[in-house]
């Protein structure tokens, strides 16, 4: 609660009275410093352990993805079968190539986990950004214009909801020659955009009938202004939450596809998990580290999403 702005209003006694006696209900208190809803949410977020842990983990992952060379000197691609075949981890050898042990081809698991981060995050962020933009746009069109557009887009989302996600992705990826990052992003986004569309559509419809939108229309505001200035900022909150949590699930989806043999050309946690299953009985560590990293990343995004939802939900304030 910011202090009351008595000095500020001393010259206007009428208003000073209004300021000192502030609103009891919403806890906003006196009209102190400017406090936007986003700002309030941010202040609230900063105090949540879930948010702090989640975002620290994500920042760490991002740094690892951007500069993997900073974390390991080992080459993830080449292995030494003679010396390092399925060696157990040496958990005290921090940041050393043998920290997590070696896999069946004598490659450093630590290095592979580090270098695999980039592709996983690229796919996760790529898909999420694409579906947020495209799915959000579709949801906005359906929600705002209603009628024909709504029927069309809603039926389309129904169709996509009918397609089993992984099966669909497998079919798409099977039909291409080379599985690259953009291809995986495209395939997952193609099948996943409807999730955001539905959320956005609902949020837009709720806000479309709000009094402040009516007020803007009464002023003569055009569609563009109403959508961008009034509806979008108020409809964003649920989309952000869903997108954050979805990001983790798309990383999982990429790994699942890789496990099923439709992995990226390159290093990825999923294909390592796939490889590891061959020796899982005798050498579980080969599976444990890439799978552990995957879970940790997904967990980080889910924690972040949960924290954001609680901070943005006005009912919990």
């Amino acid at each position: 609660m910011p202090d009351l702005t008595k000095t500020e209003t001393a010259d206007a006694p009428d208003q000073a009275a209004e300021v000192t006696a502030a609103e009891p209900r919403n806890g906003a208190g006196a009209v102190g410093k400017p406090r936007s809803l986003w700002g309030d949410a941010w202040r609230d977020l900063r105090r949540r352990p879930l948010f702090i842990i989640g975002s620290l983990l994500i920042v760490l992952m991002l740094v690892v993805a951007a500069w993997p060379g900073l974390f390991t000197s080992a080459d993830p691609g080449s292995g030494d079968l003679a010396n390092h075949f399925l060696q157990s981890p040496n958990l005290t050898h921090f940041f050393q190539p043998d920290w997590f042990g070696y896999d069946g081809q004598g490659r450093s698991i630590y290095a592979r986990v580090v270098y695999g981060t980039r592709n996983s995050l690229l796919v996760g962020f790529g898909v999420t950004i694409t579906i947020t933009l495209f799915g959000g746009l579709m949801g906005m069109l359906a929600g705002y214009f209603g009628g024909f557009w709504d029927s069309l887009i809603s039926r389309l989302t129904d169709v996509f909801f009918g397609i089993p996600f992984l099966l669909g992705a497998m079919v798409v990826l099977n039909s291409v020659d080379q599985i690259t990052v953009p291809v995986v992003i495209g395939a997952l986004a193609f099948l996943g955009w409807t999730q955001i569309t539905r959320v956005m559509r609902g949020a837009v419809i709720t806000n479309k009938h709000a009094d402040y939108v009516t007020a803007a229309r009464a002023l003569g505001a055009g569609t563009k202004r109403i959508l961008l200035k009034h509806i979008l900022p108020n409809a964003m909150a649920p989309v952000i939450v869903i997108a954050t949590i979805a990001l983790g699930t798309y990383i999982v989806a990429e790994s699942t596809l890789a496990y099923l043999g439709l992995g990226l050309n390159g290093i990825s946690w999923g294909s390592d998990i796939n490889d590891a299953t061959q020796n899982i009985r005798n050498n579980p560590h080969v599976l444990f580290f890439p799978a552990g990293m995957l879970s940790l990343t997904v967990l980080a995004f889910i924690m972040l999403g949960d924290a954001v939802r609680e901070a943005l939900d006005p009912k919990l304030r």
Binding site: S36, L219, R225, K229, H230, N234
Partner: peptide, 25 residues
């Protein structure tokens, strides 16, 4: 409007709300 709680866009500043008519006209 009737309801002073729902008729003002919660994500705009008071300046933006009162200034919006000038932006539209």
């Amino acid at each position: 409007f009737q309801d002073p709680y729902t008729s003002l866009n919660p994500r705009m500043t008071v300046g933006d709300i009162i200034g919006e008519p000038f932006e539209i006209h």
